[in-house]
Design a protein around this nucleic acid. Structure first.
Length: 290
DNA sequence: GTACTTGTTGAACG
DNA sequence: TCGTTCAACAAGTA
């Protein structure tokens, strides 16, 4: 379940190895994973050289020297694995147990044959992820069509913007509001719960009940929690692996997510509760989050 | 066998 | 038009 820190980690790990590589061919085993007809995708990708690897929200962007960009969303269970003749080099994303031992396997839906006898596998157990190809100079339009909000570390995501945009969702629970990618891009269930714990706010609080200082607190917590998670190379929960196949270091630092029924690590008094909001779970400490 | 999990989107509502 | 809610997608794990 990669969120922004996990996608950032995978991108950083793969980037130095993919730069300047040429895509010799693409094997599309499950066409529905790609938004375009396979022939169109192939035409723009074959023989192109990789000139940059970036991230926007939870999407990995692979820029080609042809003026096109491959956009990859791992969703919950997607993974990118780079293998050479000697075997596995880099694996990132949700790991399928035993899935990297033999490649390709039944979850390998798209396979890029690269120069230097390297191969990049897009594997996805649940087939939620997708690939699409866009003109590099039309990416902003693509993001706008998806109503993707600002990056949490971009200057456009400042406290004024956040306050105004958040207040528009007056009746929504703060938990739900933060999951909305139009407000800020990159937060998922784990980090929203961690942000709200850090800001000492109950996930069910309606936005119009938040005081100015509380909104400012959420803004700060978003940045500090995400920075920390990136520094620790993401969270491993249900088998996320970074680009080196290693579990993320954030797991040991989680305060509420996945800790229901256990003692609060901050106040040492509350027992972490797990509730359901809409179709999503929220974990929080009933003592120190109000 | 059943409940549960996730990110995103599009439909349907007021 | 905007805000809001919710089902659907897929398939493995508990």
């Amino acid at each position: 379940m990669p969120e922004l820190p996990e996608v950032e980690t995978v991108k950083n790990d793969l980037r130095p190895l993919l730069l300047k590589m040429r895509i010799l061919d693409v094997d599309i085993r499950l066409p529905k994973i790609i938004k375009e007809p396979a022939s169109i995708f192939k035409r723009q990708v074959r023989r192109a050289k990789i000139i940059d690897v970036r991230r926007r929200a939870k999407i990995i962007l692979i820029d080609l020297d042809t003026g096109w960009t491959i956009c990859i969303h791992l969703k919950m269970t997607g993974q990118l694995i780079l293998a050479s003749r000697r075997g596995l080099e880099r694996a990132g994303g949700h790991q399928i147990i035993g899935g990297t031992e033999q490649l390709p396997n039944k979850f390998s839906h798209v396979i890029f044959k690269l120069s230097n006898s390297r191969t990049l596998f897009f594997n996805d157990l649940r087939q939620f992820g997708y690939l699409t190809i866009k003109r590099t100079n039309k990416l902003e339009k693509f993001f706008a069509e998806k109503s993707l909000g600002p990056e949490p570390f971009h200057q456009s995501f400042n406290s004024d913007y956040f306050s105004v945009a958040l207040k528009r969702k007056r009746k929504t629970a703060i938990k739900t509001a933060l999951l909305d990618q139009t407000l800020v891009a990159g937060l998922g269930n784990i980090y929203v719960d961690e942000v709200l714990f850090d800001a000492r706010l109950k996930p069910t609080r309606r936005v119009n009940t938040l005081r100015t200082a509380e909104i400012a607190g959420i803004y700060k917590s978003i940045q500090s929690i995400l920075r920390k998670a990136i520094r620790l190379r993401g969270t491993t929960f249900r088998n996320f692996r970074d680009g080196h196949g290693q579990p993320g270091g954030m797991l040991r630092h989680l305060m509420v997510y996945g800790r229901s029924g256990r003692l609060c690590r901050r106040c040492k008094k509350g027992t972490i509760q797990k509730i359901r909001q809409g179709s999503r779970s929220s974990s929080y400490c009933p003592i120190c989050q109000n």
